[in-house]
């Protein structure tokens, strides 16, 4: 029981980040997980959810 409790506590405390071994995997038909990242120009926090109500094309890219 002690072990179970410890496991449960860890599960609740664990972050919502992809766990080790997890990868980014959006699913068609499912809500996209929200995230907050800094803007490249002024480092202001921008949440994906701040675009709710608008259609968005989310583009993961690099300049190279």
């Amino acid at each position: 029981m002690r072990i179970l409790l410890a496991t449960m506590t860890l599960a609740f405390a664990a972050p919502a980040l992809p766990a080790r071994g997890d990868v980014y995997r959006p699913t068609v038909g499912q809500p996209h997980p929200d995230f907050v990242l800094p803007a490249i120009d002024d480092r202001r926090p921008v949440a994906l959810s701040s675009f709710r109500g608008r259609k968005v094309l989310l583009v993961h890219f690099a300049s190279w």
């Binding site: 980014y24 959006p26 499912q30 995230f35 990242l37 994906l48 709710r52 259609k55 094309l57 993961h60």
Partner: peptide, 25 residues
């Protein structure tokens, strides 16, 4: 947006994801 540590855990780029008004993929 800048994710230098790849906290989103993408495995490659580019990826294009279209989200509707409700945030659904």
């Amino acid at each position: 947006l800048h994710d230098p540590i790849n906290v989103l855990a993408t495995t490659a780029v580019p990826i294009f994801v279209a989200l509707d008004e409700h945030g659904v993929v």
